[in-house]
Amino acid sequence: MLHLSSHDASKRSIILSVRPQVQSAEGALPRVALESTVIAHGLPYPHNLRLARRLEAHVREHGAEPATIAILHGELRAGLTDSELHYLATATTVRKVSRRDLPIVVAQKLDGATTVASTMFIAHRFGIEVFATGGIGGVHRGTVFDVSADLPELAQTPVTVVCAGAKAILDLPATLEWLETHGVTVLGYGTDQFPAFYSRESGLTVDARVDSPAEVAAIVRAKRQLGMTSGLLVCVPVPAAAELPAQAVEPFIQQALSEADQRGIRGKAITPFLLARVSELTGEASLRTNLALLENNARVAAQIAVALTER
């Protein structure tokens, strides 16, 4: 394990730990960041550990090196050993960490699993340009004031995020409006539409369609040349065989939303509740879709990371 620290005196106490990169014949492999909330809080054991291993395997199979992001004993980590993945999958004291939680977890030397926002923040500190996740957070239905921390992170952190759009439980039109207002470019990978997480189409358009990793890489390079500091959102539709059509899943989302309102579930508890409840109502069909899109996004992200190293 290599230990890195900032040269800035104000940041010198922050410990960054990164596993040595695997070497190819040409040199260090490109890296793809993976979040850890899905391991510690998204699935029960042993399904969470199996998924974590599969995601890392998909990245490696497509020529890149996985860097699962987490905080262990207050250290920011990019790349975990298998025993560390097992710890995240089984421990009950791992905190769910978004950007606002980072100084608390670091100062108190706690263990933390990273959300989209905090994974982006940490990945950027390690110089990792590509990040694969499931679906981003966004604007919640019924209120324009409940906005996920994922969105402002996308507006200020230059990481390419590969996802299946925003989670279908959210207000997708409002989420896209927020991204447009704050200058976040949204690409459709092999599609002209913004994917709706479980569903391949939402009826909402993206800023541009791309059909290959090389096209994404060209846009990333153009953003660098322009000096833009926002993230780039690459939206990949869930594989057709695993899709849940929007008209089929929407009634279950509405039921879950109604139950959350009746129970007074709010804030950061709402998304985990809705995803779990939709999974129950669909007989775990939505969970299977979620797993399929996570694995597909890891493959695409690795291909983009490799393309960024080519000229």
Rank of each mutant, 00 (worst) to 15 (best):
L43S: 09
H47P: 00
L281V: 01
A64F: 07
P195M: 04
R54F: 02
D8W: 10
L281F: 09
A307D: 09
R50D: 13
A166G: 11
V186W: 01
T271F: 01
L170H: 09
E250M: 01
S148F: 05
I39L: 12
F273M: 07
A33Y: 06
L49P: 07
R311H: 14
A241G: 00
T90K: 07
P158D: 02
G74S: 12
L16H: 14
T68S: 06
L233M: 12
P173S: 01
G165D: 13
D211S: 14
T143M: 06
R266Q: 13
E259D: 13
E310C: 10
K268A: 12
E295L: 15
R31W: 01
A25R: 08
A248Y: 00
Y87I: 02
G165Y: 04
S5R: 15
P44E: 13
L274N: 11
I304G: 02
Y189Q: 11
A9I: 08
K268C: 05
R60L: 11
G165T: 10
A307H: 11
S148P: 12
E129D: 11
K167M: 03
Q255A: 14
V234S: 02
S118M: 05
F197L: 12
E280P: 07
A64T: 05
L154R: 13
A70D: 04
T157Y: 02
A269N: 10
N296R: 14
M228F: 08
T271L: 04
A218Y: 04
L172W: 04
L294T: 10
H7S: 14
S230M: 00
T181Y: 12
E75A: 13
G42I: 13
A149H: 10
S199V: 01
V162D: 00
T229F: 02
F145Y: 14
L204M: 14
L179I: 09
E84L: 02
T175Y: 08
R77E: 00
E35W: 06
E26C: 01
A52E: 06
C235N: 11
D82H: 08
S199R: 05
I39E: 06
V236Y: 04
A155I: 08
H86P: 00
L287G: 02
L179F: 08
D261A: 15
S286W: 05
A107L: 11
N290R: 11
S83W: 08
L16F: 14
E75K: 15
I270L: 15
D111R: 00
S17T: 15
S279D: 13
